[in-house]
């Protein structure tokens, strides 16, 4: 299990890829929004495990965002099985937004 702040180089590559997934309401990518909590790449079991959250429960676009994550992982790591886990703890808060995310929101 790798927290978003302590990823291996391979996992960082995945994080970069996930930056192509944009929250359609906010218009900012989900990594900079702080929605991705953990990314684990297991080469033995050929599994990518992503732990993520949404900004609010009942987010009208929640499953679209998760579907987008799965599609991106499938397309770029076809040999790996992806497992996207949605969690509500810890609860997301605006403090989790990265500096890049803050700048992107300000520029909208």
């Amino acid at each position: 299990m790798s927290k978003i702040s302590a990823l291996t180089p391979k996992e960082q590559e995945i994080a970069q890829l996930l930056k192509t997934v944009v929250d359609p309401e906010v218009g900012v990518n989900i990594v900079d929004l702080g929605l991705i909590y953990e990314i684990t790449m297991d080469n033995e079991t050929k599994t990518i495990h992503v732990v993520m959250t949404l900004s609010t429960r009942g987010c009208p676009l929640g499953d679209v965002i998760i579907q987008n994550v799965q599609v991106v992982l499938d397309a770029n790591y076809p040999d790996y099985k992806n497992d996207v886990e949605l969690v509500w703890e810890p609860m997301w808060s605006p403090e989790m937004i990265t500096e890049d995310g803050k700048n992107a929101i300000d520029s909208l």
Partner: peptide, 11 residues
Amino acid sequence: MQAGLSTQNAP
């Protein structure tokens, strides 16, 4: 379906 996902419920 994961808890909290809801778009599938939309009419």
